[in-house]
Amino acid sequence: MERRVLGRTGRLVSVVGLGTWQLGADWGDVEEGDARAVLDASAEAGVTFFDTADVYGDGRSEQIIGSYLADNPGHGITVATKMGRRDAQDPDNFTLAKFREWTDRSRANLRTERLDLVQLHCPPTAVYSRDEVYDALDTLVADGAVASYGVSVETVDEALTAIARPGVASVQIILNAFRLKPLDEVLPAASAAGVGIIARVPLASGLLSGKYTRDTTFADDDHRTYNRDGSAFDVGETFAGVDFETGVEAAHQFSDLVRDTVAQDLTPAQAAIAWIWQQPGVTTVIPGARNVEQARSNAVAGSAEVLGPLFASGIREIYDEHIRAAVHDRW
């Protein structure tokens, strides 16, 4: 699998990483043994970047990763976690004292003295512009609690604000065939500044696998059921903010596009992942996986041949016809 340097962290990571929200909560139940099997299959397939957060399963995702890595010394895996959603989303809560509290908890969960990368977890927009926030993050680095810091954002404007800060190593943002806006300004700005881009929600919560129909249902504790209206968190995190029925129709067209224009034997999900990491400026893509088969299938996309301009133009056509009006100006 191809590897790239993750921005100002200086770390070499696989172009396909692993998002571990699924292993903590909000995607239905995943047993710990199954979660560890996903981590193991990903590592065996060449994945060297795990992304987690302190709120995934109230720390369960971090704990499972910490246990797995402790049992596999010399693993060479970079772990990125996130902080900031354990308290009320008030900009005044983003202080050095809170940062120390949150990172101390993550260090214990991950069984490490120093976190590889800690990201602000989609905080209120005002946080990205506060000098004291970055001063506090710089202090964490100076203290040795974290090696590098970055941000996870909801909007293009938040990303551009963070990229302008000299200490920000990486920006995590939703980027997929149904969320193209970051291609216009964020990726070029990140490349120019030497900031890494971590692309999340690459399959639009599974839509781009092409396996869903209008009748597909999800468990009650799955965010694809309870957050369709954005009542739990930003609706852009669920199906990339696309109405489910619209997304299903667009996803079927995407599957047809893969079949008609991709010479390799790739599934729609693999093609969706490969297309993202092949965009200039993207460092790594973090699809999730609930089982070993999904983990191995996702990793295959990290060695896919370059997808051609016909595929890219087809994505644009689908986006413009079905998606743009609903999402482009919102995020």
Rank of each mutant, 00 (worst) to 15 (best):
R3M: 12
R3S: 13
R4I: 08
V15R: 00
G17P: 04
T20V: 09
T20E: 08
L23P: 03
A25N: 13
G28Y: 02
G33F: 09
A37P: 01
A41Q: 05
A43T: 08
F49Q: 02
D51C: 07
D54R: 08
D54Q: 12
G59M: 06
R60T: 14
G66D: 02
S67V: 01
S67F: 04
S67Y: 03
H75M: 12
G76R: 05
I77H: 00
T78P: 04
V79C: 06
T81S: 12
R85S: 12
R85I: 07
A97I: 11
K98W: 15
W102P: 01
W102N: 00
N109W: 10
T112F: 06
T112G: 08
L117N: 00
V118Y: 05
V118L: 04
P123C: 11
R130Y: 09
R130D: 12
D131M: 05
L140V: 10
G144I: 02
G150H: 00
S152C: 13
V153H: 01
D157A: 15
T161M: 11
T161C: 03
R165K: 15
V168I: 13
V171R: 00
R179Y: 03
R179E: 01
L180S: 00
L180Y: 00
K181S: 02
E185K: 12
P188M: 13
A192E: 15
V195A: 02
I198L: 10
I198H: 03
P202R: 00
D215R: 14
T217Q: 14
T217E: 10
R224M: 06
Y226R: 08
Y226K: 06
S231C: 01
G236H: 08
E237G: 09
A240D: 05
G241S: 05
G241A: 09
E245Q: 11
G247Q: 03
E249R: 10
A250G: 10
Q253K: 13
R259I: 03
D260M: 07
T261S: 13
A263H: 13
A263E: 15
Q270R: 08
A271T: 03
A272L: 07
Q278E: 13
Q279A: 04
Q279Y: 07
T284K: 06
V285Q: 00
I286R: 03
I286W: 02
R290I: 03
N291Y: 12
A295T: 09
N298G: 06
N298A: 10
V300Y: 00
L310S: 15
F311H: 02
F311T: 05
I315H: 01
I315A: 08
I315V: 15
E321I: 05
E321Y: 10
I323A: 01
A325S: 14
A326R: 09
D329S: 13
